[in-house]
Design a protein around this nucleic acid. Structure first.
Lengths: 186, 186
DNA sequence: GTCTATAAATAGATAGAC
DNA sequence: GTCTATCTATTTATAGAC
């Protein structure tokens, strides 16, 4: 592992705080304190707090997809991959103490006041749906299975399970989501 | 309609702003400006911004359940009521320009930093689930239908559809949710 | 490229007159 | 019960020394 550069440290510290406390509840002063740098250094690397927000979302998206690839690397069947997707999101929730989806969180905070951000989130969720769609296409051919319909169902159920998991601080929603998906792909 | 009192006007103005801009992005000064009152008057009715937040959530919960009752008042069959629930949430999204769920939004902002609020949201979602459960119990008896399982599925699908609707700014998710629920209860 | 000092605006909240 | 004036802290961001 190479040494973490200052810019990377800023993004890491800011990301943790944005995720755990919320974007608006995290001040520049707290970021520089926890990153142990001066404010002038921060503004040398990022021209505004909003630019830091964009770096945060780009990083989280990259880690999300890389994390899933790593999680599902040994699986060959489409069914196993879809169930692994449920497990992956469940695992993420467990390991973050049910802090929820980075992207839903930020949309809830900035809404339409920041079109660049809401656009990024929209595209991110489209990428997630495309990932599901690609796996569904690998399923063994069945009668009465519409690829796009099945994709949409799985996508909706996963988002629903995640939201409920975040509110209830447990993983029951994911267990039920797994049942639903199991019935669809069996 | 009786005259709106000052306290009611404060709650109404604050609610609109909290919902549209977010809680942290809405300042006391903006609230008093749009409510056309002095800051001293606000603090006469509410001892803190957090107290105003609680009044907001209580009001929105009341309106949510009253709104559904009104929306479904003429329906007698359980199936129609469940489909009306989808329509109701779809209608709410349409009429708010896809601003999303008040309760998911506030949880995303305050997270666990405000236990009273996250507790309120948790209980609110339990009430929504109980509403679904009560209707599912009225369904004509069928083999192979587990009331709690069906409740959980409908609950998850509705939450998922709403989140997706908020991100994509359309109602396609609800149309798909309706299909799923229709298959379950037919 | 990192630092300190500071600006300029706004935050939530209080005191006390009327 | 509503008002104005004000307090203190904090916000994001900039200037300029080193």
């Amino acid at each position: 592992m190479k040494t973490e550069k200052v810019k990377e440290r800023i993004i890491r510290v800011a990301s943790d705080l944005f995720y755990k406390q919320g974007f608006n509840s995290t001040g520049i002063n707290q970021i520089i304190a926890e990153a142990d740098i001066a404010i002038g250094s921060l503004y040398n690397h990022f021209s505004s707090k909003n630019e830091l927000l964009q770096a945060y979302l780009i990083k989280e998206e990259l880690e999300w997809f890389n994390g899933f690839e790593e999680h599902a690397v040994n699986l060959s069947s489409a069914k196993d991959k879809l169930l692994a997707l449920v497990d992956y999101r469940k695992k993420l929730q467990d390991s973050t103490n049910f802090a929820g989806c980075h992207f839903i969180k930020i949309i809830s905070e900035v809404g339409e006041s920041n079109p660049a951000i809401s656009d990024f989130v929209k595209k991110h969720k489209e990428k997630q749906k495309t990932l599901i769609n690609d796996i569904v296409r690998e399923l063994p051919e069945q009668e009465s299975i519409d690829i796009d319909e099945v994709t949409e169902t799985i996508f909706i159920v996963l988002e629903g399970a995640l939201v409920i998991s975040t509110i209830n601080k447990n993983t029951k929603g994911f267990d039920h989501a797994k049942k639903i998906i199991q019935e669809i792909v069996s």
